[in-house]
């Protein structure tokens, strides 16, 4: 239902230990943020694409589509960096300088690379495994339990919301702004009421089974592939090394 979630749960890397996927992606993310955009960002982008498409066997088109939506948000965000106050050609006192355009380009690259690292986690690691990982990192049980229950309820609400929207559209409920706002309000109300009822029924089910404040879930034991983890982290470290050498050679 959510593209990234579907990819994570059907992908080739689904049964790998979460650490093998999350740790290298986070190292890449940290390198992206900590190092100048050139050359780190394009290298990180290449590494995440390779990991997703060549290792994870995610079709290139689906990988690119997963990046396209955040890319739109990122591009519109960089407009604010590109425009600086000053006398421009139009009636609005905003202009673009060479420095601001370069800065915008740099942020665009860094942001795309960082996003690709997060999307890499999204398309390879099922949320359930991430929650198990968080629990082993001592995140309080109240939080991980809340995450599990939210994750459980979310999909139900999204499916209901989509059905409601389809039937509203079929009855011309989304023709024109006025009617569309009203339909959106009615749909949201219906989903909210349903989510409360759902939550209550789940609670009754838990109580009936002797729920005492903690959800214990069995997770699949997966061996941690140290060799695979080492290879992935080495690639990330290599990118860091290239970035450091690049910085030194451009100074000297």
């Amino acid at each position: 239902m959510l593209t990234l979630d579907v990819l994570a749960n059907t992908g080739r890397l689904r049964h790998r230990h979460a650490v093998e996927k999350v740790v290298p992606a986070l190292v890449l993310l940290i390198i992206t943020i900590a190092r100048p955009a050139i050359p780190a960002a394009p290298l990180v982008l290449a590494a995440t694409t390779f990991a997703a498409v060549a290792v994870g066997r995610i079709p290139l088109r689906r990988w690119l589509r997963a990046l396209a939506l955040p890319a739109g948000f990122i591009a519109s965000g960089t407009i604010g960096i590109m425009l600086v106050s000053g006398d421009g050609p139009g009636p609005i006192p905003l202009t673009i300088t060479e420095a601001s355009a370069i800065e915008a380009g740099r942020v665009l690259l860094r942001s795309l690379a960082g996003t690709s690292a997060v999307v890499l986690i999204g398309v390879t690691t099922p949320m359930v495994d991430i929650i198990v990982l968080l629990r082993s990192l001592r995140v309080p049980a109240a939080v991980t339990d809340l995450m599990t229950s939210m994750y459980r309820l979310m999909f139900d609400l999204i499916a209901t919301g989509r059905q409601l929207r389809t039937s509203q559209t079929a009855r011309l409920g989304h023709v024109g702004l006025r009617r569309s706002v009203r339909s959106a309000g009615l749909g949201t109300t219906a989903v909210f009421i349903r989510s409360m009822h759902r939550a209550k029924r789940l609670q009754i089910g838990l109580d009936a089974r002797g729920y005492d404040g903690e959800l214990r879930v069995l997770s699949n034991e997966r061996p941690l592939g140290m060799a695979r983890l080492a290879i992935a982290v080495t690639v990330a470290i290599a990118i860091l090394a290239v970035s450091l050498i690049w910085a030194r050679s451009s100074v000297g």
């Binding site: 229950s149 939210m150 309820l153 609400l157 919301g161 949201t188 989903v191 989510s195 939550a199």
Partner: peptide, 17 residues
């Protein structure tokens, strides 16, 4: 507990709407 979960799930639903 489930009420809090419903609140969270509902916020996520709104962002997907």
């Amino acid at each position: 507990r489930m009420l809090a979960a419903a609140a969270g799930a509902f916020s996520f639903f709104l962002s997907a709407l």
